Amino acid sequence: MAEISHFEYGWITPTLSYALSVLGSVLGLVCAGRIRTARNSRERLWWGLLSAWALGGTAIWSMHFMAMLGFAVPGTRIRYDIPITLASTVIAVVAVGIGLLIVGSGRLSVPKVLVGGVFAGSGVAAMHYTGMAAMRLNGTFGYDTTRVILSVVIAVVAATAALWLAMTVRRPLAVFGSALVMGVAVNGMHFTGMSALSVHLHPRTGEVSGTTVSTLLAPIVLAVIFVVIGLVYALIAAPTDEDRAAAAYLDARSAQAREAAAQPPQPAPDPVGLRHRSSLARPGAQFPSRRNPPPPQS
């Protein structure tokens, strides 16, 4: 059995992986909070996609890849199969997206959160072990069954807690605190799964196919930066509840002004008897008097 190092560069890789998981969790929780306040299905779908990318892509998959930079096996080079690596990304995003869809549709309930958490957590575990299957080295992998099961349980619990927090947490301080806890859970699942791994090197060294970590690092870092910038811009540009209330007030005032302009002008109010007295005051008008009463009607 070969020696395995999970911290080849010291605490740099686990620190960066934890920072990525917290950053993705913050953005994902904020985007998920918009799902419950969305006015129509189109807005709910939009915020659900953004939240799935933030949680599944940044908080989980990017964290996994960053932590894998510190993984090394003395005596062999490690390379990665690109199609399988991309497939692990899709698995993470789709699994979290479906979990959000289950929890975010209709009224929030405990059974929905549990079902969504089991689905999303199983997808996260599948992402982790798919990413591990993308590794290529001059040897074979083995896994401890007990630790694998433990990592899956941690993934399900973490995903369930993430979905519950995504639908209930609103205040900024609570969102940040929840993201810190989620970062611990995601990293705990990753390193628990990695502790289950064992490597058996082949007696003969040969050429290992695949792409090196340094080749994948630049495009993945750029993708994470663009995704984070896009998520922040979407959150800043989206109207808040105060913006919607102000727009509704201005629309109501504009509608009232248009209705007032469309109505015909009304005549000014006439004081009592003004027109009648003015008609009697015309030249030639006869005024009844007590001395000369008007002739009786026959």
Rank of each mutant, 00 (worst) to 15 (best):
M182Y: 01
D243F: 06
I149V: 15
L16D: 00
P239W: 04
A2M: 05
R36K: 13
P172A: 14
P83N: 10
A67W: 05
A159H: 13
V113E: 01
D251N: 07
A246Y: 07
A67P: 08
E43T: 03
M127D: 05
H6F: 14
V186N: 07
G24A: 05
S122F: 09
L20H: 03
M194G: 09
T140A: 08
V213M: 14
P294G: 13
I225W: 08
T205M: 10
H276R: 08
V157H: 01
G210E: 09
A162W: 02
W46I: 12
D241L: 14
G177R: 12
G75P: 10
L250V: 13
A179E: 09
Y18C: 06
T85N: 03
V232E: 08
A237T: 12
T211Y: 06
M68K: 09
G104N: 05
P283H: 07
S109I: 11
M1Q: 13
S289H: 12
P172S: 13
V199Q: 04
G75L: 06
N138H: 09
G183I: 09
H64M: 03
E259V: 01
R258D: 01
P295F: 11
N292E: 11
T146I: 09
T215W: 08
T215A: 15
G117W: 10
L235V: 03
R275C: 00
V96F: 08
G210C: 06
H64Q: 08
I98L: 13
H128S: 04
P293K: 14
V113P: 01
P14Y: 08
V96H: 00
M63P: 09
L163K: 06
P293S: 11
L45S: 11
V30G: 00
R36F: 04
T15R: 00
P219Y: 09
G188N: 00
I82T: 01
S17L: 03
S62V: 14
R171T: 09
M68H: 12
A125S: 15
G56H: 02
V113W: 00
A238H: 07
R147I: 06
R258I: 00
P265M: 03
V157E: 02
N40L: 09
L16E: 01
V96Y: 00
S289V: 07
S254L: 14
E43L: 02
L150Y: 02
A245G: 09
A155Q: 08
L100P: 01
N187L: 15
G139W: 12
R36Y: 03
S279K: 12
A248F: 11
A252F: 01
G188A: 00
A159Q: 13
L274M: 11
G139S: 13
V186M: 00
I225D: 05
R291E: 04
G284D: 11
S5Q: 10
F141R: 15
H190Q: 13
L29F: 11
A161P: 01
L69D: 01
S279T: 08
H6E: 05
P294F: 14
T140R: 14
L23F: 04
P83Q: 05
V199M: 12
F119N: 01
F141M: 15
P172T: 11
M127T: 10
R275V: 04
R77W: 02
F226A: 15
I154G: 07
F71P: 07
M132Y: 10
P203C: 03
L101Y: 12
P293F: 05
T130K: 03
A237C: 04
P14M: 04
S209L: 13
A246M: 14
R79K: 14
A237D: 12
S278R: 14
L274I: 04
